[in-house]
Measured scan of single mutants.
Amino acid sequence: TLFEALYDYEARTEDDLSFHKGEKFQILNSSEGDWWEVRSLTTGETGYIPSPYLAPV
């Protein structure tokens, strides 16, 4: 399942991933609570992002 960003987000740590509203992601790991490890389909980068900022496509 692909997810889309509902809002912009600016990374706060080196493990976070900055992204823009509308960017699409592949979920790599969603078992860590509200922070999911994802791969951006736009940039190819991986990192953690807050799951409340995402919605299924």
Rank of each mutant, 00 (worst) to 15 (best):
S40G: 03
L2C: 07
L6W: 06
N29D: 12
F3K: 00
R12Q: 14
A11D: 02
Y7S: 09
T46P: 01
E37A: 07
A5S: 06
L6K: 08
T46M: 08
T1P: 13
R12I: 13
V38K: 00
T1Y: 11
I27C: 03
Y53T: 05
I27V: 14
T42I: 10
E10A: 10
G22K: 02
L6C: 05
W35P: 13
Q26P: 00
S30L: 08
Y48N: 06
E37D: 03
L54I: 10
T1W: 13
P50R: 12
T13E: 11
K24Q: 13
E4K: 05
F25M: 03
S30G: 10
R39V: 13
E32A: 13
V38R: 00
S30E: 08
L2H: 07
L28Q: 02
E32D: 14
H20P: 05
H20T: 12
R12E: 13
T43Q: 02
D34K: 08
V38H: 00
E14Y: 09
F3N: 00
E23P: 00
P52M: 15
Q26F: 13
P52W: 15
G22W: 04
E23F: 03
E32P: 09
I49W: 00
H20S: 14
T46D: 03
L54S: 03
D34N: 09
E45L: 14
E45D: 10
G33C: 08
W36H: 01
T46A: 07
E10D: 11
Y48I: 10
Q26Y: 14
E10V: 14
G33F: 09
T42Y: 09
L41R: 01
T13L: 11
R12H: 12
S31E: 12
V57W: 09
T46N: 05
E45S: 11
S51E: 04
L17D: 00
R39N: 04
Y48H: 09
W35S: 07
W35M: 12
I49D: 00
S40R: 13
L2N: 04
F25T: 00
A55M: 11
S18F: 04
Q26C: 10
L2A: 05
Y9K: 03
L17Q: 03
F19M: 09
I27H: 03
T43N: 07
W35A: 06
K24F: 11
Q26G: 02
S31K: 11
S40A: 08
Y7F: 14
A5F: 01
G44Y: 06
L17I: 13
E45W: 09
N29I: 06
L17A: 02
P52C: 14
W36N: 01
G22I: 00
N29S: 11
L6Y: 03
H20V: 14
A5N: 01
A5H: 00
Q26S: 08
F19H: 02
L2V: 13
G22T: 02
E14W: 08
Y7T: 09
F19W: 05
D34M: 12
G47A: 04
Y9N: 03
D15A: 13
A5L: 09
E23L: 01
G44Q: 06
T13G: 15
F3Q: 03
G33P: 14
F19K: 00
E37S: 07
P50F: 15
L2I: 15
I27P: 01
G22V: 00
E37R: 08
Y53L: 13
E14T: 10
L2E: 06
L2S: 04
E32W: 12
E10S: 11
Y9D: 01
D34F: 15
E14Q: 11
